[in-house]
Amino acid sequence: MIIDTHLHLIDRSALRYPWLAGVPALNRDFSYEEYATEAKRAGVERVLHMEVDVDPADIEAETARVEGLSRQAGSMLSGTIASCRPEDADFAVYLERQRTNPFVKGFRRVLHVVPDDLSEGALFRDNIKRLGGTGLTFDLVVLPHQIPKAIALAELAPDVQFVLDHCGVPDIKGGAEHPWREHMSEIARRPNVMAKISGVVAYADAANWTVDTLRPYVEHTINSFGWDRVVWGSDWPVCTLGGGLSTWVAATHALLSGCSVSERDRLLSGNARKLWRLK
């Protein structure tokens, strides 16, 4: 069984995505139906939606839309990681509204597209601390040079469970392992951080990557965090930039070919089920 912890859905008729104008390859609709057809063939059985950095005014509408899709017969959608703005004064009120909705499993604020000092603000940090004891996770999406900023948040809020997306977004196309490698080893020392093995094909050379191209990055992430602190995600449709969902699933199985059944099961489904209390 595969639980995909990182699905993006894009519906430009219903929501606004300011960033899409700068990424022509993704500037179209990506529907649940399109994803589900391929995902079921690839062995995915359940999925968490990941916020898509919609216009701030559309944040709660995005959650409502995805929750509506989850109610359709046969839907694989089991929850959402919702967008948030911890830098805003009304975050506490927003958090209380979301806590009443069991479909919301956690939050994410995209940090690699904002100034580095955003996460260092007193209000941002106080609001991240509010997640402690709620059972709601916080996904971290940062570039390699920003991982120390993520470490600072993890240390500031030891009662919050963080999830580092996309193996720390390494520059696989450029073959760069430093300082990414050292930063990954360091952040993994924080017990309240898990890593997401998700969509790294998007960071490789789309025309030339092989499983061995990805291996140093995926294996270092798993070795750093251990098999109990990793989850899997597709990052669809971003993964289409490097070959697509089925290609990424196939590469994942190849990367796990020497692992035990227990290790494989923990990465592909068991850890996600436990972390987000998926039945």
Rank of each mutant, 00 (worst) to 15 (best):
I10T: 07
A14N: 13
R16E: 13
P18D: 12
A25R: 04
Y32Q: 03
E33Q: 10
E33K: 05
E33N: 08
A36S: 15
E38N: 10
R41D: 12
G43T: 09
E45F: 14
E45Y: 14
L48H: 03
M50Y: 12
V52Q: 15
V54I: 14
A61R: 15
E62K: 07
T63H: 10
R65W: 13
E67K: 15
L69Y: 04
A73D: 15
L77F: 11
G79P: 07
G79D: 05
T80Q: 12
A82H: 11
R85P: 10
A89S: 11
A92F: 05
V93N: 15
L95P: 05
L95M: 06
E96Y: 10
Q98N: 09
V104M: 02
R108L: 03
V113Q: 14
L118E: 08
L118P: 05
E120P: 13
G121C: 07
F124H: 00
D126M: 08
K129Y: 10
R130T: 01
L131P: 01
L140Q: 05
V141F: 06
V142T: 08
Q146C: 01
I147W: 06
K149A: 11
I151R: 08
A152Y: 01
A154R: 02
E155Y: 03
F162I: 01
L164F: 07
D165G: 01
H166Y: 07
H166P: 02
G168T: 04
K173I: 08
A176T: 13
H178Y: 13
S185A: 15
A188N: 10
A188I: 06
R189W: 07
R190S: 13
A195E: 04
S198C: 03
G199P: 00
G199N: 02
A207N: 12
W209Y: 01
W209L: 02
D212N: 03
L214T: 02
G226W: 04
W227S: 08
V231N: 02
V231K: 00
G233T: 00
S234A: 11
W236H: 07
V238H: 02
V238E: 02
C239L: 10
G242E: 05
S246A: 14
T247A: 15
W248Y: 13
A250I: 11
H253L: 15
S257D: 13
G258R: 09
C259V: 14
C259Y: 15
S262L: 15
R264V: 13
L268A: 05
L268P: 07
L278V: 10
